[in-house]
Design a binder for these strands. Structure first.
Length: 561
RNA sequence: GCAGGCGUGAUCUAGCUGGUUAGGAUAAGGGCCUUCCAAGCCCUUUGCCCGGGUUCGAAUCCCGGCGCCUGCACCA
């Protein structure tokens, strides 16, 4: 099946292998004119959901990031594997997985090699000797800046999410310090896949649309949840089994852990159906514990049934406060939100007050740090001489250098690190799924007709205009209509070559929902026929009624819907 | 990354035990014809994945690379 879809996609200009004249490069594809248009339409609808309806803020950040970012995000460690190859049968393995010790995944190449020799590890397949482990990081590494001192190591981002975390404080202020709010980004991600395959399903450079929804972990209810609460969805929870259940019930029964997650499952389903994913081939599957990404606490994938099997196209992950916490730790910046009380509270609490007259002479340069360490300790536990640790050194602070006092303070709220729900969409996979789910072949009189039943809103070409014959003034009339439609912002084509049936067939194959034909009656009464792709049904109407009719049939003009 | 299979115009394919100008179908462009679903006729365009070797001669045999497919491994 995918061969047929990909052959059509290649022939008609949806998808082309990239760098083809140089032999191609696996894991890289070009979108041809129709594919680029289709992608644009899918993203437009995605934005309608996330940016327009949900009011999320769209940002746009660099593809290339300095190393620090991925040190914090965990991708540098968790994304790097050491591979060892059997010198006899050629099988490749992750070195750390072959060892019988704990935390083998944190060892260096040399340590792994040492350990492998100690344990006398042989190839699990054939018993042959294994090579020294070689690092393999899924991120593309490069250098930023001129060679020399100024040079920094950079990586192409493996996901777009990090920017939303790094910009958290800006976003929080932008949203006037109110949660929940969401930020989205549409962009490219890069992963140096070991063995990309299966067309658009595993690319090395891919398009993704991600939303990071920040909310208070104490309140995982979701404002508009009612909208999707009654939607019946096919769920596969990680406790096993398969069920069709409404989202409201799933939350009540604890199958989906909170409303926020469930809401975005509902929204994702709504979006996918809108762009033409087949409902009967859609399900939501919860990740198994050991399947989860290093940052995720829970994750539901939207999976679609393709000729390759069930394929993940959207991941909806509960990233908790993992990312903000890590960036706080690595950058030293405070990435927190405020939970405001209804009224400011006056609270009384114990506080350690250091006496710098004493601390100064005692600890010199480190005095300030000692004081800070002292303040961060539990004041009720402070008694007598206290030991504090500063930069690995231990100091003893005498009782006379500080006092513990009761202090009254006005507090208008408390700080906390927001949690994040992340719906992450693989646009290329989604686009392919839309093609495959809408691709139909009909055998008629020994000939194969192909119809791409795309929803009008995503179809790359919205309408075609044909003269029945390219003569007798039919052609000039059709050209006028075509130009008017273009001016009104419709994606239209004009075609007068070959027989009319051939032209319809061409349009059917690329999913054009409507064809307008100018015939001899048109010359007499100013009417044309409009033909529906899926039913081949024709309706006759006045030319001036066309724009209204086209809009009514569920498609938007390019300019404004 | 390993193993196996495969690679002929835009698409599908014949030729592949070496031997003329690599054949067909579809598509595409032009023309004729044609009053609504890939009709017909004429003309035209595009090809042996890349590189090396063996040979008088390679699409064909051998080696290497690249790509595609399947399996294994990998897929935060």
């Amino acid at each position: 099946m995918w061969e047929k879809v990909l052959a059509m996609a290649k022939r008609r200009g949806f998808i082309w292998p990239a760098f083809d004249i140089y032999g191609g490069m696996r894991g890289f594809y070009d979108y041809g004119p129709l594919g680029a248009e289709l992608k644009k339409n899918i993203l437009k609808i995605w934005r309608d959901y996330y940016v327009v309806q949900e009011g999320m803020a769209e940002i746009d950040s660099p593809n290339l990031s300095p190393e620090d970012v991925f040190r914090a995000s965990g991708h540098l460690d968790k994304f790097e594997d050491y591979m060892t190859v059997c010198e006899k049968c050629g099988s490749a393995f992750r070195a750390d997985k072959l060892l019988n010790i704990e935390h083998a995944d944190s060892l260096s190449a040399d340590e792994l090699w040492e350990e492998m020799q100690k344990e006398k590890i042989k190839c699990p397949e054939c018993g042959g000797p294994l090579s020294k482990p070689e690092p393999f990081n899924l991120m593309f590494k490069t250098r930023i800046g001129p060679k020399g001192k100024r040079e920094r190591v950079g990586y192409l981002r493996p996901e777009t999410a990090q920017a939303m975390f790094m910009d958290f404080s800006y976003l929080y202020r932008y949203f006037r310090e109110k949660l929940p709010f969401g930020a989205v980004q549409i962009g490219k991600g890069f992963r140096n896949e070991i063995s990309p395959r299966q067309g658009l399903l595993r690319l090395r450079e891919f398009n993704m649309a991600e939303a990071e929804v920040f909310f208070d972990p104490e309140n995982k209810s979701w404002p508009g949840f009612d909208r999707y609460a009654d939607d019946e969805i096919l769920l596969l929870p990680n406790t096993g089994g398969e069920m069709r259940i409404s989202l409201g019930k799933a939350v009540k029964k604890g199958i989906i852990k909170n409303e926020a997650l469930a809401y975005f499952i509902g929204l994702t389903r709504d979006f996918l159906l809108k762009i033409g994913i087949d409902e009967g081939k859609l399900r939501f599957r919860e990740h198994l514990e050991d399947e989860m990404a290093h940052y995720a606490d829970d994750c539901w994938d939207a999976e679609v049934l393709l000729s390759y099997g069930w394929v993940e196209i959207v991941g909806i992950a509960d990233r908790t406060d993992y990312d903000l916490k890590r960036h706080m730790e690595f950058s030293g910046e405070r990435l927190v939100a405020m939970r405001r009380y209804d009224e400011p509270k006056e609270i009384e609490r114990l506080e350690a007050v250091p006496d710098f007259k004493k601390l100064g002479p005692l600890f010199k340069k480190d005095a300030k740090k000692v004081a800070e360490a002292l303040k961060s300790m539990d004041p009720s536990a402070l008694k007598g001489a206290v030991k504090v640790k500063v930069d690995g050194k231990e100091y003893e602070v005498p009782e006379s250098a500080y006092t513990v006092k009761k202090v009254k303070k006005k507090v208008s709220g408390e700080e906390f690190i927001p949690h994040v729900i992340e719906p992450s969409y693989g646009i290329d996979r989604i686009l392919y799924a839309v093609l495959e789910h809408n691709y139909n072949e009909i055998e008629e009189e020994g000939e194969t007709y192909r119809i791409l039943s795309l929803p009008p809103s995503v179809a790359p070409i919205k309408v075609a205009v044909f003269p029945l014959m390219p003569k007798d003034g039919l052609d000039s009339m059709a050209l006028d209509i075509y130009r008017d439609l273009l001016r009104m912002g419709f994606r239209a084509v004009y075609d007068d070559s070959g027989s009319i049936g051939r032209r319809y067939a061409r349009m059917d194959e690329i999913g054009t929902p409507y064809c307008i034909t100018v015939d001899y009656q048109s010359l007499e009464d100013g009417t044309v026929t409009i033909r529906m792709r899926d039913t081949k049904e024709q309706v006759r109407l006045k030319i001036h009624e066309l724009p209204e009719k086209l809009k009514e049939m569920g498609m938007s003009g390019g300019m404004r819907g």
